[in-house]
């Protein structure tokens, strides 16, 4: 049900601009909406991050994934159990760039068992999540050519590498295929794996379908309709240079559908689980070194008025019995 509603929502986001542009509302979808989306995204994203960053981390609670640094002759794991900022930096690099925690699932093979085939499902989650995220990044970088003149060198490199197989005309980007594979897998998991379906909500299906919509309209534009790239770039440059205007040459409605979906993503982003992009950098179990035995970690709302049940009160309670048992006491009876 949740998946179906999400699908309808995405479909609407494609159909509305498609029809709207036909009715001469190109400027609304090509200029006004993108500005709104960018503003909401930037303000929303910043506010969420600031809100998180401002919340205190009262305690130093890293999840330690390896040997602590204790005695000099015991080898510690500086990245899985960092004791300083350098270690945390490496831990975060591994986490963010390699999805270290998702990769963690080791599986042991036993001699008495037969040969095993294929990835266990955890590893497949790691693999396809990694594929999706990297393709998404690559595609974002490639799109910079629409927003920059002259196009910077790294963007050219990204394009070149992405189309290195030289298949088809226009040349096919591998990332387009791979991102479909990645998204397809992530969606299929949600739909077909009973365990994951059970925990999935509308806000899990919607972004996946939204991204799929973006990729599919993008692929459609590039490989099927073969839209006028010059005109699209004119529109895009107009937006980034703050001189927005509609290009003279007509642009295929699929471009507006693509653009609207992207805007929807931008608007949706700050209010959704997609904020995990920012949240991972602030997660107290990961970005904090395991140092609270070594040095002081300060809790801003520490309440100094909380005192232990005092020894004096304890001794008052049990003094006679303590004396009888030969235990030393501070005050004589």
């Amino acid at each position: 049900m949740a998946a179906f509603y999400s699908f309808l929502a995405v479909l609407a986001l494609i159909v509305i601009p498609w029809l709207g542009v036909g009715m001469g509302m190109g400027a609304l979808f090509g200029i006004v909406l993108p500005y709104i989306a960018i503003i909401i995204f930037m303000v929303g994203f910043t506010m969420r991050i600031v809100d998180w960053a401002k919340s205190p981390v009262p305690f130093c609670i890293p999840t330690t994934g390896g040997q602590q640094k204790s005695l000099p002759w015991i080898k510690n794991s500086p990245w899985d159990n960092p004791y300083d900022k350098k270690g945390v930096f490496m831990r975060m690099v591994l986490e963010v760039l390699c999805f270290r925690s998702l990769f963690r699932n080791t599986s042991v093979k036993l001699q008495q068992e037969g040969p095993k085939v294929g990835y266990s499902s955890e590893k497949s989650l790691w693999l396809f999540a990694l594929i999706f995220h990297y393709c998404f990044l690559l595609i974002l970088v490639r799109h910079l050519r629409f927003f920059m003149a002259p196009v910077p060198y790294p963007v050219h490199i990204a394009e070149f590498m992405d189309s290195i197989l030289q298949i088809g005309l226009p040349v096919m980007y591998q990332s387009d295929v791979l991102i479909l594979v990645g998204l397809g897998f992530l969606l299929a998991r949600r739909v077909f794996d009973g365990k994951v379906r059970y925990i999935s909500l509308m806000q899990d299906y919607f972004p996946l379908l939204l991204l799929l919509g973006i990729v599919v309209t993008g692929v459609w534009m590039r490989y099927v309709v073969k839209v006028d790239v010059i005109a699209v770039k004119e529109l895009a440059m107009g937006i980034v240079t703050l001189h927005p205007h509609m290009p003279k040459a007509a642009i295929d409605p699929s471009v507006y559908a693509h653009l609207t979906l992207v805007c929807a993503l931008f608007i949706y982003f700050p209010f959704s689980k997609l904020m995990h992009m920012g949240g991972v950098f602030l997660s107290p179990t990961r970005v904090v070194p395991n140092m609270s035995r070594r040095a002081m970690w300060v809790n801003p709302w520490n309440d100094p008025s909380i005192k232990p049940h005092s020894y004096a009160a304890y001794e008052d309670d049990f003094r006679e019995k303590m004396i009888e048992a030969g235990l030393p006491v501070d005050k004589k009876a």
Binding site: D51, V196, I199, K273, P284
Partner: peptide
């Protein structure tokens, strides 16, 4: 609690329900 603990706030917000923890 949300005000006092960043951990709590982030853990409420960022879960993507990927299912890695499930088993």
């Amino acid at each position: 609690k949300l005000k006092k603990y960043r951990s709590f706030k982030i853990f409420m917000d960022v879960c993507v329900r990927c299912g890695a923890c499930a088993d």
